[in-house]
Computed example of a mutant assay.
Amino acid sequence: MPENEGQPRPPHHPHDKGYRQLLADKRVFLELLKTFVREEWVAAIDENDLILVNKSYVLQDFSEKEADVVYRLKTRDKNVIFYILLELQSTVDYLMPFRLLLYMVEIWREIYNNTPQGERESKNFRLPPIIPAVLYNGANNWTAELSFKEMLDGYQNFSGHLLDFRYLLFDVNRYSEEELVKAANVIASIFLLDQKARPEKLVIRLQKLAGAIKTMTPEEFRHITTWLKHVIKPKMPTGIQAKVDCILDANKPWEVEQMISNLEIALDEMRQEILLQGKLEGKLEGKLEGKLEGKLEGKLEGKREVARNLLLLNVDIDTIIKATGLAPEEINALKKQLEQ
């Protein structure tokens, strides 16, 4: 067993941080599987058999690329040990099937190296299955290939002879609001709150989740408020962030309606401040424009006065143009006025 199993690794990407911390809780990870994966093997997983693998499977060929979340587990009925490898993405990575394959090979390599030679060379030695998955919260559709063979040129010509696997895709923004509200658990609530929307939409979504949140344990509720503070709050205007912190710190699951009401008030105050700021800026801009126009008009009138005096002295028009910078048309117009 790898050293430090059961403890989350420190994340180093902003998008990873929220989901890594969230999915380090095996209850939430199991919720993810049982809510969104409709396969028989999921039903055979028990929470007590989930072990978070705190090991960095770094790909030497990909700078700053490493496996995000890896769980070691076994099925309840057959006691088969297997792994789930979950990658976190906020942008589409077209190399994802290849990256997942490399991570899987690294996990198998470690298991092979940690197995006694006599055991691994026996007829009955088997490598554990690894189920690859991607959690994606980007705004655009996930357009990378879903199976490994589709990355191979002309794979249709070699049917039955090629390595292949198909990874699970959890696409946050493609789940319907109805489906997420109906699930009524932590991971579905987080997905709904993470879907792209303006801050005002956040209050509406929280209102729809209120019934589920009220029944959550304090630990589950902490996941929701932590997510709001560290992932959603930074997307809000700076002026409201400190107030949001205070609101989230002061509430418990059964006080969720009060929390939502306080957030709504804070957002309304933010809108009023933005409107007031806009009006003040408009007035200030009008005053500045008026002063600038006055100065420009004064300078122009001064040039015209110089041109009139030079015309009265019978100075030629070309000289007056050079002296004042006025256009020939304007000087001719001044000349006609003097001749009337």
Results as ranks from 00 to 15, higher is better:
residue 332 N to I: 15
residue 55 K to C: 02
residue 99 R to A: 04
residue 234 P to H: 02
residue 159 S to Q: 12
residue 206 L to D: 03
residue 337 Q to E: 09
residue 43 A to N: 09
residue 299 K to R: 01
residue 154 G to A: 15
residue 276 L to A: 15
residue 29 F to Y: 02
residue 169 L to Q: 08
residue 58 V to R: 11
residue 130 I to M: 00
residue 155 Y to H: 10
residue 160 G to H: 02
residue 51 I to L: 02
residue 78 K to Y: 12
residue 136 Y to P: 03
residue 86 L to V: 02
residue 78 K to A: 06
residue 263 L to I: 10
residue 106 E to K: 03
residue 51 I to M: 01
residue 327 A to Q: 06
residue 206 L to M: 01
residue 89 Q to Y: 12
residue 170 F to C: 08
residue 299 K to I: 13
residue 118 G to S: 13
residue 143 T to N: 06
residue 115 T to V: 12
residue 9 R to E: 03
residue 61 D to Q: 15
residue 169 L to K: 05
residue 338 L to D: 05
residue 143 T to I: 07
residue 83 Y to C: 04
residue 153 D to L: 07
residue 100 L to E: 06
residue 49 D to E: 10
residue 256 V to K: 09
residue 185 N to Q: 05
residue 213 I to H: 05
residue 41 W to H: 02
residue 72 R to L: 06
residue 5 E to S: 12
residue 225 T to E: 06
residue 130 I to R: 11
residue 311 L to K: 11
residue 70 V to L: 02
residue 272 Q to K: 14
residue 185 N to G: 10
residue 183 A to R: 06
residue 79 N to F: 11
residue 73 L to V: 01
residue 62 F to R: 15
residue 338 L to M: 05
residue 52 L to Q: 02
residue 29 F to V: 08
residue 291 K to R: 13
residue 83 Y to F: 00
residue 147 S to G: 00
residue 201 K to R: 05
residue 233 K to M: 07
residue 16 D to Y: 07
residue 151 M to H: 06
residue 291 K to H: 11
residue 86 L to T: 03
residue 300 L to W: 08
residue 283 K to E: 13
residue 112 Y to N: 00
residue 297 E to N: 09
residue 280 L to D: 15
residue 287 K to T: 12
residue 89 Q to G: 05
residue 170 F to E: 12
residue 220 E to K: 06
residue 86 L to W: 06
residue 278 G to R: 09
residue 173 N to C: 02
residue 115 T to I: 14
residue 336 K to G: 03
residue 4 N to W: 03
residue 99 R to V: 01
residue 261 S to A: 05
residue 314 N to M: 10
residue 103 Y to I: 04
residue 41 W to N: 00
residue 243 K to S: 13
residue 120 R to I: 05
residue 166 R to F: 14
residue 212 A to M: 09
residue 138 G to C: 09
residue 7 Q to M: 01
residue 247 I to D: 09
residue 41 W to F: 14
residue 201 K to T: 10
residue 315 V to I: 05
residue 2 P to V: 06
residue 126 R to K: 07
residue 75 T to C: 10
residue 72 R to E: 00
residue 43 A to H: 01
residue 79 N to C: 01
residue 218 P to C: 07
residue 121 E to D: 10
residue 138 G to L: 15
residue 287 K to L: 14
residue 135 L to A: 04
residue 88 L to H: 01
residue 90 S to H: 14
residue 81 I to S: 01
residue 175 Y to A: 11
residue 153 D to M: 12
residue 98 F to Q: 05
residue 83 Y to V: 13
